[in-house]
Design a protein around this nucleic acid. Structure first.
Lengths: 325, 325
DNA sequence: TCGACCGGATTAAACGTTTAACCAGCGTGC
DNA sequence: GCACGCTGGTTAAACGTTTAATCCGGTCGA
């Protein structure tokens, strides 16, 4: 199959390539009939315009960049997939640039993408870093940046909702588990949970794993804690296996819950209760904001997308005699 | 900062843009002195050739595609990262195309990439599918395809090594856990394990989760099995939590091990023993094969990349009185 | 002394698309 | 009857590179 160009089609119809271009784009003045026939023929032979040629002429590549800075973010694949889907729907291709490591690597990755001609960039930044503005439109997921280009799940609301559910189950002494204080996402989730618990007069203690690498969770349970809420299913899993290994029954003696509904969360026993975020909605939001900016329009006002509770087996009513073995 | 082109530099030196191009590429005939000065100036102002212009002229975009067909593959992020790094080192950009779903979606993703001008494509295919040849060079990871373009970890050897280690620990009655029979990777791993065990005269039983969604692992332990080897850490985790929940001590009463060293594998308690693959080496191999083919050379002969055992806490000597509670 | 050759650069074409500017008819209003 | 405007196109330039073909002045060999 030979390579098809506008010229090829133009010759078939005995018209100029400009006319074919106009017919396909619907922009210039072409008779309705001819336009229809040209479009039909183009579809028939599967004509697709050459991206480089178009890019050269228009200055736009039809490609957006995706910077995934934090490899340890277990949502990575889902973000990649969701952004890819949203981009495809908007006619964009997705160039990735992983920037494991420091903030320097992150900005280097951004530069690579602009040099390759990305029309805009979606960034899932390394936790705790701000993304500096650069010469292409940006959409930042889950991190503070210049206002108007950040898309977030409602981590605080999700935290509050999760806490509310545990309160409803009768829990009054809970442990909150976070990993890194410098993660905005984790701070928001902890904050939401802590606020809801405080408002209800429940007792809550927060543990940051960066301070205490291997806390003795079973001991906390024996001291009276009846529920462990972690900012990520990964840490919820750590708690769960530690409790089980110590012979504590989950959820009979203690409840465990996390965030993000990771791959393993439904596979463990008991299956983890988790607060999930709608990754696809976030990605769509990011892409909407981005393509608006690429087109020169103002970005639509964004709202935090709600999280949803997935209640499985790892949570249950608070035990009558907390912590008793 | 204005946009820099060859012309800009050419004018500064009072020469033609062709000369600048030659100087930078080292191809035509330019006096050594002038060439040096031009290169210096180009570096100084950070000149980078326009990818679309170059692509239009040369017919090569400098971009490779990456098709990640199986989202459920937890190695996804590591492959993305490794391929990105290898591509960057070779001067390529990476366009992704996720194709969750069936084989049709997979080929659709491939088409999208060729249409966008990918010079070659790396595929991590959906399990059990063959990748059909198309008009651009392909490198397939972990799946059968036309000979010469498949890069694999040594799954069979890894399986054998893992089994050998458990044999050395004294285990003689083991359970092998796989998920899908149509996955080549899983078949290879199971095959390697089973062969090694059979050769040593140990008893091995294989369970495919697609047949029995929720097998009673604790019961198997009570019947005498002292070790559970799963084709993925994900399933090893399922086994581990099921055993723990049933009050069985790991590894005192039963050992558990998996493959791929997933994110959570070190975080659970006891930490999972696992057979890890060198994702970076595989990615480099894939990229070497791919760029060779793009350049028109024959692909270098590939060898399966060895896997390495990461021994952690979930495996130990076989209990003296197997299965006894 | 003249043709050949060679180093060092220039010219020009080409890649495929988009788009502003132009042009030929043709019907219309006045 | 003529300027005007509309319709349906065409021409040509431009985007930035690469590369084959060409050109020019000097040097060398014969």
């Amino acid at each position: 199959m030979r390579e098809m160009t506008l010229q090829t089609i133009a010759e078939e119809f005995g018209v100029s390539s400009a006319t074919v271009s106009n017919a396909l784009s619907g922009k210039g003045r072409v008779s309705a009939d001819l336009a229809r026939r040209i479009r039909a023929r183009a579809a028939e032979i599967g004509y697709a315009p050459s991206p480089p040629a178009r890019a050269l002429r228009t200055g736009r590549t039809g490609v957006i960049g995706l910077v995934l800075a934090d490899l340890s973010n277990p949502l990575f694949p889902r973000y990649a997939r969701a952004v890819d889907a949203a981009a495809e729907a908007a006619g964009y291709g997705v160039l990735i640039a992983d920037s494991h490591g420091d903030v320097g690597a992150q900005t280097a990755a951004l530069q690579r993408l602009v040099r390759r001609g990305a029309d805009g960039i979606v960034v899932v930044p390394r936790r705790g870093t701000r993304v500096l503005e650069l010469e292409v439109p940006l959409a930042v997921i889950d991190a503070p940046s210049t206002p108007g280009n950040t898309i977030c799940a409602d981590h605080r609301g999700g935290g509050a909702a999760l806490a509310a559910r545990l309160l409803a189950l009768g829990h009054r002494s809970l442990v909150l588990v976070g990993a890194n204080r410098d993660s905005n996402v984790q701070r928001e989730r902890i904050g939401g949970m802590a606020a809801a618990l405080a408002a209800a007069g429940a007792q809550a203690r927060t543990i940051w794993l960066e301070d205490a690498p291997a806390p003795d969770f079973p001991a906390l349970a024996r001291e009276g804690a009846t529920a462990f809420l972690a900012t990520s299913d990964l840490h919820a899993l750590t708690v769960l296996t530690a409790l089980q290994r110590a012979g504590l029954a989950v959820p009979a003696q203690a409840s465990v819950a996390g965030f993000d509904d990771l791959a393993f969360s439904a596979a463990v026993s008991p299956a983890l209760t988790t607060m999930a975020q709608d990754v696809d909605a976030v990605a769509r939001g990011a892409l909407a904001a981005l393509s608006a900016r690429i087109a020169g329009r103002a970005a639509p006002p964004e709202a935090a997308v709600a999280m949803t509770l997935i209640e499985r087996e790892s949570t249950g009513p608070a035990p009558a005699t907390p912590g008793n073995l």
